[in-house]
Amino acid sequence: MKYILLLGAALLTMQGLTAQRKLDVLYFKNGSVIRGHIFLNKEGVVKIENRVKDTLVFSSSEMDSIKQEQVYPKITSNGFYNIDEGGLQISDRKGSVWRCIVGYRFAYQYQVGVGIGLDDYQARSVPVFGDFRYDFSKAERTFFSYAGGGMAFPWLTRKQWGAQNTKEPDKNIAGAYVHAGVGYKFRWRYNSSLHISAGYSHAAFKTKNELIDWTTRQPLGIFSTTDYSFNRVTVMMGLTL
């Protein structure tokens, strides 16, 4: 429950940090239109700073109306991107996960990339994966979905392999890594954005320890196997550049 509350708090924080920007728009009786930020509107005098930082002064009598309009970040349709994200993984146990993804965005909303991460759960591993993301709109704030898959390479700590065996594994065998979920993105400038997401991640891999003949102390050529299979809820926050 506390993680759900943390998720909500993080979302609200991101919304605050990336508050939607608006521009003041002056419509003149002579047909001119000027956009900027009004910093004084008093006693029939309007002072406005335009986007090139000029200060302009007008009389209210010259204007037809004053309105506000939303400013949307400029998104390019194509280009490279980098996502760095981290978060929590929760199932029977808790752990953390960090992912770094690089890829290419095309048609504004589609992103395809490859990534590497550190999955620090009951047994630590390094996932290497392909990643696909889809933004549901080009708006400043939008839901998105993601999915990916690849391999998880076991990289156990001493404490983790010590819980199963008296020595470090003789073989580490990578297994499947899959993640998928949905998130919410806050664009703030051009193609940069913050996001929060929640989804599912699966990691499976094995470690093997060679059995030793207890009389001769020689390796027997056969192995005991520890099979790991983790299915977790993953809550992530990240940054896209």
């Binding site: 993680y3 759900i4 998720l7 929760i90 199932s91 029977d92 146990r93 009951q122 047994a123 199963q164 929640a198 989804g199 599912y200 059995l211 005991s224 196997t225 520890t226 099979d227 790991y228 299979s229 983790f230 299915n231 977790r232 809820v233 809550v235």
Partner: peptide, 16 residues
Amino acid sequence: LFVLSSCLKDKCSNSI
């Protein structure tokens, strides 16, 4: 998140 978290389990086993 709440719905998803109640469905997931880990597995870990040793085989000799």
